[in-house]
Nucleic acid binder design. Structure first.
Length: 722
DNA sequence: AGGTCCGCTATTTTT
DNA sequence: TAGCGGACCT
């Protein structure tokens, strides 16, 4: 069989990775170096050249998007959809295994996945049940703590330090929450992984089964794995399995949520892999790459990598120093208009920022200028309140013991069941160790509720039971439709919200019915004996859907630097490069976090294909207050010779608005902004900023070689060269 | 039971 | 500035 098409379009390093034959492989894949291509070709290579059965391959990614893309491209390359090939997210794959072995891990067949919001509400419920002070044990923090323990593989019984009463209480919350989940057949995201790890760890037969099956394990974005994910991969791969690990330590930006870059070096230690570096970049100009290389060079403890390109130097990076965030936004939108005016497309432009709040100004200006835009990171479809409400009804049909679902809709729409009544039901559930639904039924039967409340609860229970009977043989679409109709959520929202808002909710509910109608159950779910309804519920939790609808439109892209990872745009703006904002204050304060901010900067820069603008503002509103900032240290780390100062900082007089001290152009040192100066040690540079007077006068110079420096004039002995 | 007002807080996000 | 949650009022 001719397999040249698998290698023809690859460079040497990519080829080395794809064909690697010596045990395990670590591919250090720089930004834009063709990482996905290598993964996809590797899979095809194993199947077509080494005749590995698709059944023997496991490919793991982080996001559904990445998994979907990989699956599509493998299918395309092989010309067929390889049957039996497991490509999926960590959570998707674990979910699948747990469904297959639910009985062995002590889960009911009807177990439900708890999304973050459900989990949060349940933890809050638990803390109240335990009658603890929510100030001392905030649900948000407890959620983080519990998830962190799980990500580290810890059960309540594995946690020590119980000498501290507060810590002991936290563990008690974890235990209570976990017991609750067990009783109700609920599994949170971290639990999906932890259960699977425990299954493989404690059940030798299962472990052997999978280890024998998966001769090859491929893992994407390895720098983002946490301890549990690494443990999972090791268990699945076993002694015999070959690991093909792709990652980039320089793009590790999720340490704050448990990702361990150290897994990359641990992998080298544990598996002694062949290491291949993909350093040739097919995305950005040489100028952008060199600047990015130089910035990331300020980090220690790197595996080491230098991006290069055969392409041209391209344009310099433009650095814009704005007085205010408003001016920054005006400037950026004006440059986008230039781009469009020159025939560029709006969707080729991306504005990247550190925190979501920054999008507002850009949105205002884009709106004013009539340019379409799309903000990433809004609420996702299955996270919308009305959708979650409808889904809660559906969940109750599927599993009456789903307490979070019961709590969510027991009084939505309002049917006169208040906190007191619900608390009576909870008490009953606690003392009888049964679900809320069962407790409510018992109370009705025992007439243990006030007449009014009792009637209301009874009608709710009847509604659920009746819906269940009516839809027993109905399709998923018809069931959903019946649920939405019976629940009367549209009416409920219409009665209490602004018309346009309620209308959107009703449209979403219609959309939900359509989604259920067109839902195609994955073949493997069907084989596992799963009802379509169960599949649908699981998928809603695991893939919450698109962030925002208008993705098809040709519009300017607004997103955080984090969401930009993995994407590329011809025209990129990185805005708000100010100390305190980027790097964020919190990251500056905590040791070790700064290098992650720098990696974020590196990620941002390497999104740009042709043209990169970097900007900062001296003043902006933050939490309703105007604050003054210095440029980010990352700006100083940009090599001066690659930068074009679009507007060197002007003497203040003209734009002075009375905010703080401005550089004084009338000082007698004879230097001027934009002027060229020479320095004994640093060489030649451009004056970028002047500050203070007399002995205190300081000057910021962008030196061609040494980069940007602040110098005190009294000591620096600069020479005027212009 | 349900609605309103006040005060507190405030990176980054996927599953 | 804005959203959320809790306290308070009807």
């Amino acid at each position: 069989m001719d397999v040249s098409h698998l290698l023809d379009e690859l460079n040497d390093a990519q080829r080395e990775a794809v064909t690697g034959d010596a045990g395990h492989l670590l591919v250090l894949a720089g930004a834009g170096s063709g990482k996905t291509r290598v993964l996809v070709h590797r899979i095809a290579w194993l199947i077509q050249v080494h005749h590995v059965s698709p059944m023997g391959l496991l490919a793991v990614t982080f996001t559904n998007k990445a998994a979907g893309e990989m699956r599509a491209r493998v299918g395309e390359l092989l010309g067929i959809r390889p049957e039996g090939l497991w490509i999926g997210t960590f959570h998707g794959i674990c979910h699948r295994m747990l469904r297959m072995h639910a009985d062995e891990v002590g889960l009911p067949d009807t177990f439900q996945i708890l999304d973050s919001d459900d989990q949060y509400r349940l933890i809050r419920r638990v803390i109240r049940d335990m009658e603890l002070d929510e100030g001392q044990f905030p649900a948000r923090a407890m959620q983080g703590l519990i998830n962190h323990h799980k990500d580290e593989g810890r059960r309540p019984e594995n946690i020590e330090h119980l000498d501290n009463p507060h810590a002991a209480q936290q563990v008690a919350i974890y235990r209570y929450y976990q017991d609750y989940c067990e009783r109700s057949g609920l599994v949170d995201f971290a639990e999906l992984l932890l259960r699977t790890v425990e299954l493989l760890r404690d059940n030798p037969a299962r472990r052997r089964h999978y280890q024998e099956r998966f001769g090859h394990t491929l893992i994407d974005e390895f720098q983002d794995t946490n301890r549990l994910q690494y443990a999972l991969v090791r268990l699945l791969s076993g002694e015999q399995g070959r690991m093909f690990v792709v990652g980039d330590d320089d793009q590790s930006i999720y340490g704050w949520r448990g990702a361990r870059v150290e897994n990359v070096s641990d992998f080298v230690r544990d598996f002694d892999p062949q290491v291949v570096r993909l350093e040739q970049n097919y995305r950005s100009t040489a100028t952008i790459l060199e600047a990015a290389n130089r910035v990331i060079d300020h980090n220690d403890d790197r595996m080491g990598k230098n991006l290069w390109t055969e392409g041209e130097a391209g344009e310099p990076i433009r650095l814009f120093a704005a007085w205010s965030a408003e001016e920054e936004a005006d400037y950026i939108i004006a440059r986008i208009q230039d781009w469009i005016g020159q025939g560029g497309s709006p969707s080729e432009a991306a504005i990247l920022y550190r925190s979501n709040a920054q999008s507002r100004l850009f949105e205002q200006v884009l709106l004013r200028e009539g340019i379409d835009y799309r903000v990433y990171g809004g609420q996702r479809f299955f996270e919308r309140a009305e959708i979650k409400d409808a889904m809660a009804y559906l969940r109750l049909l599927h599993n009456r013991n789903d307490d979070p679902a019961f709590e969510r809709v027991i009084n939505v729409p309002a049917r006169g069941i208040g906190e007191r009544t619900v608390e009576r039901v909870r008490e009953q559930a606690r003392s009888r160790k049964i679900s809320l639904f069962a407790a409510a039924s018992e109370l009705i039967a025992a007439q243990g509720l006030p007449a009014r409340a009792g009637k209301a609860i009874e009608s709710f229970i009847e509604k659920i039971n009746m819906l269940d009977e009516q839809t027993a043989n109905a399709s998923l679409g018809d069931t959903m439709s019946a649920v939405v109709r019976a629940a009367q959520l549209g009416e409920w929202y219409r009665g209490r919200e602004a018309p346009d808002r309620a209308e959107t909710r009703e449209e979403n509910l219609e959309e939900l019915v359509r989604a259920a109608e067109s839902f195609e159950q994955p073949a493997e779910d069907e084989q596992a004996g799963l009802a379509p309804l169960a599949s649908f519920l699981a998928q809603a939790a695991l893939e919450a859907g698109e962030h925002q609808g208008q993705s098809w439109q040709d519009c300017v892209q607004l997103m955080t630097l984090h969401s930009a990872k993995g994407l590329e745009f011809p025209l990129v703006f990185m805005a708000g490069l100010e100390e305190g904002l980027f790097p964020h204050q919190k990251s500056v304060e905590e040791p070790g976090r700064l290098s992650e901010e720098r990696r974020l900067c590196y990620v941002g820069m390497t999104r740009a294909m042709q043209r990169l603008y970097i900007s900062f503002a001296e003043s902006r509103y933050l939490h309703g207050q105007r604050i003054l900032s210095r440029p980010s240290r990352f700006v100083d780390e940009l090599p001066a010779h690659l930068i074009e100062q679009v507007r060197p900082r002007q003497p203040a007089a003209a734009t002075q608005t009375g905010l703080g001290a401005r550089p004084d152009s009338s000082a007698d040192h004879g230097l001027r902004l934009g002027g060229t100066v020479g320095h004994q040690r640093f060489g030649i540079g451009t004056v970028v900023s002047l500050e203070g007077q007399g002995d205190n006068a300081r000057v910021q110079v962008n030196f061609e070689q040494a980069g940007s420096k602040w110098l005190v004039l009294a000591y620096a002995s600069l020479e005027r060269l212009d």
